[in-house]
Simulated scan of single mutants.
Amino acid sequence: MVHAHNGMPGSPHAGSYTATGRTGQKSRTQRALVEALRGLMADGQDPSVSDVAASAGISRTTAYRYFPDKESLLNAAMPQTGERSLLGEDPPSDVAERLDRTLGEHFAFIRDWEPQMRAALRASLAPGAGQPALRGGRAVRWYEEALAPLAGTHPGIDVHRLAVRLRAAAGIEPYVWLTGVGGLGAEEAFAAMKSNALDILHAAVGGA
């Protein structure tokens, strides 16, 4: 499984710096930066590396030794954000099974980071707001990877457009509506999103 990345964070850049020297202290500093980012994002902020350093009480120069940019810090704090695919090792060839696995991992991501995702959603809805780091369209890419075999079996299907439709049916936005307005519990909401997404896939494949 791809989720449950709640242990010691890592990134290629950070790993090369923390692997030598005072590794214990470096690991603590790295963890402090990661936890500061998670806390700031849960409060609705979209902080820079400098903001995170200030929150963690760590110098800006030191922070950039671990994470040269916000994307590398985000990937260390929430490793799924750096993944091209959520299919994991030995992915199935059947598209419905690939979608089912991707949905399960996407929902695990929502479970793990719900406060941060809700905060990013709120921030993105403010008038004139830009898109926070968690609103980068990564899930569309995950669904495109799940649907990839359709390029050979159903060339008439626009995989990108279908991935967008799936993302509209399964993500933080429908989850917030289903739990807040629809009155469903979390697991009921995930089940509803999964059912809707699989129905969309089956209709698209059957129609093609």
Rank of each mutant, 00 (worst) to 15 (best):
H3E: 14
P12E: 10
A14Y: 04
R22Y: 06
T23C: 02
Q25Y: 08
Q25L: 10
K26H: 03
Q30H: 08
A32L: 09
L33R: 02
V34D: 05
A36V: 00
A36S: 09
A36C: 05
L37W: 07
L40C: 00
L40M: 12
G44C: 03
D51K: 02
V52E: 10
S59R: 01
R60S: 11
P68W: 09
D69W: 07
D69A: 13
K70F: 01
K70E: 14
L73C: 06
L74H: 06
A77R: 03
M78I: 15
Q80F: 12
S85W: 01
G88I: 13
P91Q: 14
S93M: 13
V95F: 06
E97Y: 01
H106Y: 12
A108V: 03
A108H: 04
P115S: 05
Q116E: 12
A120S: 12
A120M: 00
L125Q: 12
P127R: 02
A129P: 01
Q131C: 04
Q131G: 08
P132K: 13
L134R: 00
L134E: 00
L134N: 03
G136E: 13
R138S: 14
R141L: 15
W142M: 12
Y143F: 15
L147P: 08
A148L: 09
P155F: 12
D158N: 13
H160V: 13
R161I: 04
A163N: 03
L166G: 04
L166T: 03
R167Y: 08
Y175N: 05
L178E: 06
L178P: 00
L178I: 10
T179C: 10
G185L: 04
A191E: 12
M193V: 07
L198W: 09
I200D: 05
A203H: 13
V205M: 11
V205H: 03
V205Y: 04
G207P: 01
A208H: 09
